[in-house]
Every structure is written in C-alpha cells, then in structure tokens.
Amino acid sequence: MNKAFPVIRLRDRGNWLVGRDGVVLCFFLPRNHIEVGPAIWRAIRTYVHAIPPGSLSWYTSSDGDMVPLDDKGWEHNHQEVAVRQGSGSRNMELRESPSETGGYQVEYYGRQLDSPFHDAPATTLSFTFPTEYLLEHGAAHLRILALELARELPFSFGYASFAVVSSQGSWAEGDWNLLEALLARHPGLDAPHASEFSSVIGTHALGAYWLTFLGQPLLGQLGGVEALRQALPDTSLLPLEDERLLITLGEWPDAIDTEKAAVPPQYSALASLLAPYVFEYKGDLNGFERLMNQWHRRLCP
C-alpha cells in the first residue's frame, strides 16, 4: 500500500495556482466525435455523480470565457458533446475554479480524424481528482470508477496516474525549476496536457502508468492479450469487452520517489514493451517538446 504522496503546488508569476497534486484519468479515442458523443456524455455524467456535489462550478462558454455552470450551462455542454452534428472540433471544459487549477476538472476534445488542422488527432476525454479523493475513497474505488468511465469508450490508449494536475497543461506556466526537480525525483508523476496530445497522438501511447488502458489498434500491434500476459507474468491484466485491456501496475498509484526506492520492475517492463509505440515529437523541437519526449521514455531501462 502506498499513501505517501508528494504535496504539489505550482504557481505562476501572478501567484495563481497552475498545478497541484492529484490523479489524472485520460482516454484517447481514434474516432470522430460524432461517433462517440453520447458515450462520452454518459462517462461525464458518471464522473459528476462520483465526485462531491458542486465540485464543478464553471465551464468554457462558446466565446471562450469561463462562466458559472448552471442548468443552462449543462444543456449547452450536452448539446456540444452529444447532440450537435457537423464537421469541426468540439471542445468542453468543466472546472472547479474559473481562474486557478482545482482538483476536479473535465476536459473533452472531440476531433475529426481527417482534420487538416491537426497532425494526428484523437478524440480525447480527461478527468482529474485531488489526492484527497484518492485517500478518502481508496485506490480500489478509483480503479472501479475508472473501469466504469471506460466502459463504453473505444479507446486505443488511456491511463490513470498520480499527476501534476492542471487546467489545459497550465503546469507549464509554473516554476520550471520546481517542476523539473519534481519530475526528476518522481518518475511516476504525470505532466498531463490533454488538449495538446489530442491533436498529435493518433494511436500512439504515452508510456506506462498505474492504470494503462489498451484498445485497438494499439493492443493488436502489441500482440494481443496473450502476448502481453506472457511478457508481463507478474502484472495484473484484465481483458475488457471489444478487444480492450486494463493493465494495473500496483495496488495504489505510485509517484515513485527515487530518493527512497528504485523504479518498480513492472513499470520498466511495460514501458519497454510500449516504447516502439510511444508518441514522439519530430523536427525542430521547442523546450516543451523536448521535455515531453524525454518524459515519455523516462521509465525505459
């Protein structure tokens, strides 16, 4: 059992909270948004019923402003995700605070796979939980909830991990010295950025995580469930309907404090198997892209 999680508070130059400790759960679906909108909406409603009432109080309106999430706002988001047809992308963000990163957030990026505006898009759905939720309810509860949220989603890749929770990758606006020190010490942390990777991930993976969800075509490229069972004999594998799989790398999420212990072997083993399929930026890279390329392969031996 692992309950020793780092407390993280990243602030920008204006002292706004842009990153905090928590758990991220994210799915990447190689589907056009109109194919999966109703299933996405049902997953969002399941999440809302699982978290404390009133935890989501704000949403991004059509003009890009954060506005209070009232009944009209819920209907607007329902139309955006599950009802409105047509081409183009669909974005939705539900937040705990209009100005700072909170523990509870939903991000949805509905993509068109043939979009000329994205390199390799995937419809993407992300949920976050504060560490307090994990400690109150336990890891088994969170794993069961993750399975319920994943139940109808035709993902190629998904994951749940202890993370630097942020709003739309706002952790990048914080103190980079502090962030790099955290990542160097804790390779089990995730630095999530659902909006960024929804445009480029395609059917790639992002690495090995506490909960690693694999679907088609990625699962087939890895040889299927039986091949993974043989390659990971001491790891929990749970086959799911529709040729999908959940790999669990421990009873609890693990930030992996390398000052106290080595990287658990099951993390390195899965990371090695996924390495040929992990997303990588190419070409002339900026600082963010170089950091992400290094980070996604941090667990490979």
Rank of each mutant, 00 (worst) to 15 (best):
residue 155 F to P: 10
residue 79 Q to M: 12
residue 22 G to H: 05
residue 29 L to Y: 08
residue 248 T to I: 11
residue 27 F to W: 14
residue 175 D to C: 04
residue 242 D to N: 15
residue 176 W to M: 02
residue 168 Q to R: 14
residue 58 W to F: 14
residue 184 A to H: 05
residue 145 L to S: 05
residue 201 I to W: 10
residue 158 G to K: 04
residue 115 S to R: 04
residue 181 A to F: 00
residue 159 Y to G: 09
residue 75 E to I: 07
residue 73 G to R: 11
residue 162 F to R: 08
residue 32 N to H: 13
residue 172 A to H: 12
residue 27 F to D: 00
residue 253 P to W: 10
residue 191 A to Q: 10
residue 180 E to A: 04
residue 96 E to Y: 04
residue 18 V to H: 03
residue 284 D to A: 12
residue 274 L to Y: 11
residue 122 A to Q: 01
residue 75 E to D: 09
residue 257 D to N: 15
residue 63 D to K: 07
residue 65 D to C: 06
residue 208 A to M: 07
residue 2 N to S: 03
residue 56 L to W: 02
residue 67 V to L: 05
residue 126 S to V: 01
residue 282 K to C: 09
residue 290 R to D: 07
residue 113 L to Q: 04
residue 44 I to S: 04
residue 3 K to E: 09
residue 66 M to W: 11
residue 245 L to G: 06
residue 67 V to I: 14
residue 154 P to V: 07
residue 240 L to P: 05
residue 230 Q to Y: 07
residue 296 H to Y: 15
residue 132 E to Q: 14
residue 216 Q to R: 13
residue 104 Y to C: 00
residue 86 G to I: 09
residue 8 I to Y: 06
residue 97 S to H: 15
residue 139 A to G: 07
residue 212 T to Y: 02
residue 27 F to N: 00
residue 290 R to K: 12
residue 21 D to T: 09
residue 167 S to V: 14
residue 183 L to M: 14
residue 193 H to L: 08
residue 298 R to Y: 03
residue 47 Y to C: 02
residue 59 Y to D: 00
residue 148 E to T: 06
residue 204 H to C: 15
residue 197 F to A: 09
residue 294 Q to V: 11
residue 204 H to A: 15
residue 286 N to E: 04
residue 32 N to W: 02
residue 70 D to F: 01
residue 87 S to A: 13
residue 152 E to G: 07
residue 201 I to M: 13
residue 175 D to V: 03
residue 55 S to V: 01
residue 182 L to T: 01
residue 193 H to V: 03
residue 243 E to R: 12
residue 78 H to A: 03
residue 39 A to G: 10
residue 143 R to E: 14
residue 71 D to G: 06
residue 246 L to S: 09
residue 280 E to Q: 13
residue 195 S to W: 13
residue 28 F to S: 10
residue 269 A to L: 08
residue 183 L to H: 06
residue 278 V to L: 08
residue 218 L to E: 08
residue 68 P to C: 04
residue 24 V to H: 00
residue 259 E to H: 12
residue 209 Y to S: 09
residue 42 R to Y: 00
residue 85 Q to V: 12
residue 261 A to I: 02
residue 173 E to Q: 15
residue 133 Y to V: 01
residue 71 D to N: 11
residue 223 G to T: 05
residue 156 S to C: 14
residue 10 L to A: 08
residue 244 R to S: 06
residue 136 E to Y: 01
residue 180 E to Y: 04
residue 129 F to Q: 11
residue 77 N to M: 14
residue 127 F to E: 11
residue 70 D to I: 02
residue 98 P to K: 09
residue 159 Y to C: 10
residue 145 L to K: 03
residue 48 V to I: 11
residue 171 W to T: 10
residue 159 Y to H: 15
residue 178 L to R: 13
